[in-house]
Design a protein around this nucleic acid. Sequence first.
DNA 1: GCAAACCTGTTACACCCTGTTACACCTTTC
DNA 2: GAAAGGTGTAACAGGGTGTAACAGGTTTGC
Lengths: 241, 241
Amino acid sequence: MNEPSAHILVVDDHRDIRETLARYLVKNGLRATTAESAAHARKALKAASVDLVVLDIMMPGEDGLSLCRHLVETGSLPVILLTAMAEDTDRVIGLEIGADDYVTKPFNPRELLARIRAVLRRTSQVPKERDPIDQEQMLFDGWTLSVTRRELVDPSGVNVPLSSGEFQLLCAFLKRPKMVLNRDQLLDLTTGRAPTVFDRSIDNQVSRLRRKIEEDPKDPKLIKTVWGGGYMFTADVSDGA
Amino acid sequence: MNEPSAHILVVDDHRDIRETLARYLVKNGLRATTAESAAHARKALKAASVDLVVLDIMMPGEDGLSLCRHLVETGSLPVILLTAMAEDTDRVIGLEIGADDYVTKPFNPRELLARIRAVLRRTSQVPKERDPIDQEQMLFDGWTLSVTRRELVDPSGVNVPLSSGEFQLLCAFLKRPKMVLNRDQLLDLTTGRAPTVFDRSIDNQVSRLRRKIEEDPKDPKLIKTVWGGGYMFTADVSDGA
DNA sequence: GCAAACCTGTTACACCCTGTTACACCTTTC
DNA sequence: GAAAGGTGTAACAGGGTGTAACAGGTTTGC
């Protein structure tokens, strides 16, 4: 759990944001450098060995998107995008370009930290991360989920019927294991719906899913709650091959 | 699992979209060529051996639909359509013409990649890809459906008589396996009728078909219900060759 | 031509799925 | 330690789904 302190480059044209964020990251055991523009970021990247870039998508001059594209194409540096508004188009664009994650402003620094750690964990584990989205079969902790057959089989070989919503939720988790997913993301990933003000539907679906896959739903081992952040699927996931 | 890199032709009149998408595909281990119009696409198809075409349905000049129709009728090239809006009509038209799949804009590139891989998997299984619409025989999970004879034979060789409505429905499913089809699409695909307000006819036909082909109609394995979405045929389908 | 058999859309009702609400409990903050 | 706010989940309501029953239409057999 104690990484040898990863180095984060924070790129944002707002001084407040980038410095506060950098301080917060340092306070939490990471190293951080700031850059106020895409040009400064390029210099910083040449000067020091950076492990991950947090990048505002909207900046004067060369904007975040084009730098992001550059980063993703050339080096294999993980990128987390900051997007001003929860615009669907931005999100799609960000993922298209190949950002590893995105966070919408105003963001919770804890959430961002969790995402940074999740991305670092992912990118350091696997030499080259593969998109598990089209896996037909996924395994975790003795369980088997057949995506095409929409069936879940427990370690002893018994079929566990899932509702459509539970199936979707489990898929979302399995595609992004060991990553903190907040409720809005999960809602988007499962139903595509936009979050409303007091939406507890994800909490309820998680509760229902836990009842089916956790040995002791009161002390869940597979789906952990990240207080103030969301949920995280903790088991190792592999494809059926 | 590691194909010798399939070659995708991306046809879209928006430069941003086609280039970003092409880059994304290449980054994920595929080869990609772009074309900005149907005419350019035709040239590209003659010049290089393409495995699959991703095609925007709305383009100035000769539009995507007519090129799609051409591709499906002449060559045996799988096609994935991009449709601007989630217009049901577009979707149905695309499937009618024989596109292998469609994706609505704004699309999630990961999803598109997954669909591309799924289509490639499906079409590469069969030595010679043909439009499954005129398949004489289709196999799934031990069953045989003879399209010309309109006969269904179960795994033990017993003939299971189908009404014409049930036959139509099963055909619709077999032509689009592992795809969620909503009730309106199924209604259109089977009867060509437009949906009325409270139309439960598809539900009833599904129920009747399940009674004939599912081992346990109460716990269906072949035709799964997608709550709020429609139905999905889950078995692998191949032609009789 | 007639009746029986069959097919299929409609209706009705039981059941299931899921979002909302409410409240107890927990974590964090001050 | 109290206040504020996040989380777990039971209970409920609304709406989606399965399917039996029925009616009208069509086909089949004679």
